[in-house]
């Protein structure tokens, strides 16, 4: 048993490498922040494209649905590898985008950011969609009957109500996103778990990446509690009838 603890919970190893692992974890957090902003925006765009009315826009809706379905069906790791393995060699793409170094970050960081945005945009689109579809049809009809266009009705009436219904599922996706930033370690982004594994290769001891996992725990556990709180609060509102217009 002490063998087990020495292998995974050696506090000396954790202490010696705390700074490196924490630096790596900051990479995870930075990547998370960038992707969260991009994916929340991209997801909303996708969700709105999916809701476009009329027969003429059917092809656009179809393409959007295909995109969302496909990216939800591919392993994220595959998307990361695909982008980092192909984008650098697409010569028609400007060099600053093929090998991006924005904000002083390395190209693996940006390949990861792009891959996670593409995938999480699709996930977020589904969350927005649930929120949008929870708004009664009468709301759009009332807005349209007042002369608003479809996009005015979405912007002023539907989306503002939809986003109040989805903070809990949205936060769940964001928790997953933070954890999935570790996947970018496979293309050599120096994030917490990759650094942990490098330390393991040096010291033959797994404690450093256990430390990395613990850092995720510190952020994600309270966030999971917050999700529960939001769900309960929302149920309370429904029980008090504030969502029911009578």
């Amino acid at each position: 048993m002490s063998e087990f603890f020495n292998q995974y919970f050696d506090f000396t190893v954790m202490g010696d490498h705390f700074g490196e692992v924490l630096d790596g974890f900051f990479k995870n957090l930075l990547l998370f922040a960038v992707v969260a902003v991009l994916a929340l925006s991209w997801g909303l765009i996708l969700a709105l494209l999916r809701q476009l009315p009329g027969k003429k826009l059917m092809p656009l809706r179809g393409v959007t649905i295909a995109y969302i379905d496909c990216l939800r069906a591919i392993p994220i790791l595959g998307v990361i590898l695909l982008i980092s393995g192909s984008l650098p060699y697409l010569e028609f793409v400007p060099k600053d985008i093929r090998i991006p170094h924005f904000l002083g970050q390395t190209d693996p960081f940006w390949y990861g950011a792009l891959a996670l945005t593409l995938v999480y945009g699709a996930y977020m689109a589904e969350v927005y969609r649930a929120g949008i579809e929870a708004i009664p049809r009468g709301q759009i009809e009332a807005a349209r009957s007042l002369g608003m266009s479809h996009s005015q009705a979405m912007r002023n009436v539907v989306v503002p109500q939809a986003v109040t219904k989805i903070p809990a599922p949205m936060l769940n996706e964001l928790i997953s996103l933070l954890k999935d930033t570790t996947l970018v370690g496979v293309i050599a982004l120096g994030e917490a778990l990759l650094i942990g594994r490098e330390v393991q290769a040096e010291t033959f001891n797994a404690s450093a990446y256990v430390l990395g996992c613990a850092m995720f725990l510190v952020i994600c556990l309270p966030a999971a509690r917050l999700v529960d709180y939001l769900i309960k609060r929302n149920q309370g509102k429904v029980a008090r009838g504030s969502h029911i217009a009578v």
Partner: peptide, 24 residues
Amino acid sequence: FQQFNLFPHKSAMANVTMAPEKVL
């Protein structure tokens, strides 16, 4: 409408002013 369909996220005033501002 039968079910009123007021915009629940807006005050009575804002329900009435929205369309004149945005559309007209």
